[in-house]
Design a protein around this nucleic acid. Structure first.
Lengths: 342, 342
DNA sequence: TTGGCCTGCTGACTCGATTCAGCAACGCAC
DNA sequence: GTGCGTTGCTGAATCGAGTCAGCAGGCCAA
């Protein structure tokens, strides 16, 4: 590129190659065969592009084609969520793969901000919008969104029938059952399955019960508490005040499991010999505990990726709800081999 | 807006108001006084905008003005970092405040991807680029970036002299000193201050030593280990095998502190009565420990906000490096009142 | 009457691409 | 030599705004 000169335009390329703008445009858009451009012209244009360091102006192209090659992601709190922010990683990677960029905006749950953000993204001309939530739950998307293509991420909107990508909580519950069943003794769920702000709990519990039943086992008790460290700690401490802990604990998330570890700490019971612990999330926290926690992971990066893929896939219009498998992250909190069940 | 009609353009507004496109444009851009447009014309145009539901086409405007009202954020791993992802929250909030959108891209540290991403963002016509890193460290920004306005976030590039926004690690170290000095006995630093991938450690240590010196105290020992839970746990367990723990621990981050808690667990020493623990990060983890951890926080959201503000502030060209204060997050791991120093 | 100034507006060009419709030049069949 | 088809290209319109230069028309002073 010539020093000091302004950025070259398509017209400059065309002039240098001795062809019209039209011809140059066809060549750069891969339509040279269709338009029967001679090989010589193609070569001259390509050379000119290199010589001038030409890069097409995306804005001008967008004006003409009404496509901006950007996708928006509107969320309540995803970037703030410690672990859920990987949805952004996945989404942005998938966008880049499709030569798009990801535009992000957070609403903090404020419906007004949500509406504003949606409108501004539409003004900006995004090619589609991913509507994401920190917790897996049901939502009602703002009507203004519906002018664009929308894919839901980590949430569903039953009324709208919009395509959605969510973790397979039910399958995750089944996986947890298999892990919990490795230990003998009662299976105890820790954490209120109706935790507000999500319905992951009910689905996990349903899967857990289904699979335990198949194994000839059952959920023997549920210790209801918020999904936080201190709530789980005190709930369990209180619950065990009767007899000593035994069997296996299925914790609704890794923080609850951490609370369980703390509650076990004072007692004379070791993990996993006396008590097995399984949980959900697959966050880094699981690897910080001793012994490391066996946890059924939320595939956040994959969720983000799948959502953007679905959004940009022209064939995926009414593709319903995709449930992505929750992979087990193996730790040391369950016995490595299943005990033989009587 | 009329049903089924295509989106109204400025020309439609002008026609309905009985003025020229030029006049309508001046009015909508707040230049009606300067251009001496009559109050009646202004009113008619505003009414037409409402009637038609007119929203300006940002792409067309961008083409003309060469401003896209978007800013890019290129990072190595910020969205994946559990806690650092709040930089995105702050950055996106600041962008929105200035009527801009945030475009994100992650490189995973790959210089090739970095270059590509930078070029694509420039093609996209971003009004500026924030270059961010997960860890606070020195970087060399890719030369292709320098075509745009750039602000560094959580890193510095001494050679380029680019404006940067970073946490005030030195000041944070001083704050930690005040907290550690509340307990009598030796002050022990936990975590290698030369942790690879960041130079936060050396700055924290320098601030710590400076302030301790002012208080007539000193760093009595440094237990060098990686900034991870298991490394800190085993390093401390080993270190204490001589005598019992006492004094105060200054942990290089919250995970190290968690390791310290675990190491203390078997021993007969309580926090903060026997050992005070201070750390750096201010992550949620601090609130999950028992007792809750007193930690000098990284103001990630503020950092992100300040970076975008600086980027968009026309007066802030060579504004040097902004060091944002690290706020103390008070927990229960240090004595509440300072002991009288002899 | 003429010239100059103010008020209130507009015509036409511009940003940088995409794309439809059409046009010369040539060969070939009749 | 006329008509037709193919090859290889191009002119000009278009997307939807922003903006410079200028133009009527009225008023006032000389």
């Amino acid at each position: 590129m010539v020093r000091g000169a302004r950025k070259p335009r398509l017209a400059d390329v065309a002039a240098r190659a001795g062809v019209s703008r039209t011809t140059a445009s066809y060549i750069l858009n891969g339509r040279s065969d269709e338009m029967r451009i001679s090989a010589e012209a193609v070569a001259r244009v390509r050379a000119a592009v290199v010589d001038l360091g030409y890069r097409p102006n995306r804005t001008a192209r967008s004006l003409r084609t009404a496509q901006t090659r950007t996708v928006g992601l509107i969320s309540d709190n995803v970037a703030s969520g410690h672990f859920a922010s990987r949805m952004l990683t996945g989404a942005s990677a998938a966008a880049r793969e499709a030569d798009h960029f990801l535009l992000i905006g957070e609403t903090d749950g404020d419906p007004l901000v949500e509406r504003l953000l949606a409108e501004q993204m539409l003004d900006q001309g995004v090619d589609g919008i991913v509507y994401a939530t920190l917790r897996h739950r049901e939502v009602v998307v703002p009507p203004s969104l519906l002018q664009a293509r929308v894919v839901l991420l980590n949430c569903v909107d039953p009324a709208s029938g919009l395509p959605a990508v969510v973790p397979d909580e039910h399958g995750g519950g089944r996986a947890a059952a298999d892990l919990a069943a490795r230990a003998a003794g009662p299976v105890v769920v820790v954490g209120d399955e109706r935790e507000q702000g999500t319905h992951a709990g009910t689905m996990r519990l349903a899967g857990l019960e289904e699979r335990l039943d198949e194994l000839g086992r059952a959920v023997d008790d549920v210790v209801r508490c918020d999904w936080t460290v201190p709530a789980a700690r005190s709930a369990l401490a209180c619950w065990w005040s009767g007899g000593g802990p035994a069997g296996s604990l299925v914790c609704m998330n890794d923080r609850v499991a951490m609370g369980a570890y703390q509650a076990l700490d004072g007692l004379d019971a070791s993990i996993p010999a006396d008590v097995a612990v399984v949980s959900f999330d697959g966050s880094e926290l699981a690897s910080w505990l001793t012994p490391t926690l066996t946890t059924v992971g939320l595939p956040f990066a994959d969720l983000g990726e799948a959502a953007v893929r679905t959004l940009l896939d022209p064939d995926a219009r009414g593709s319903g709800t995709q449930r992505l498998a929750m992979p087990v992250v193996h730790g040391g909190s369950v016995p490595t081999v299943a005990r033989v069940t009587p």
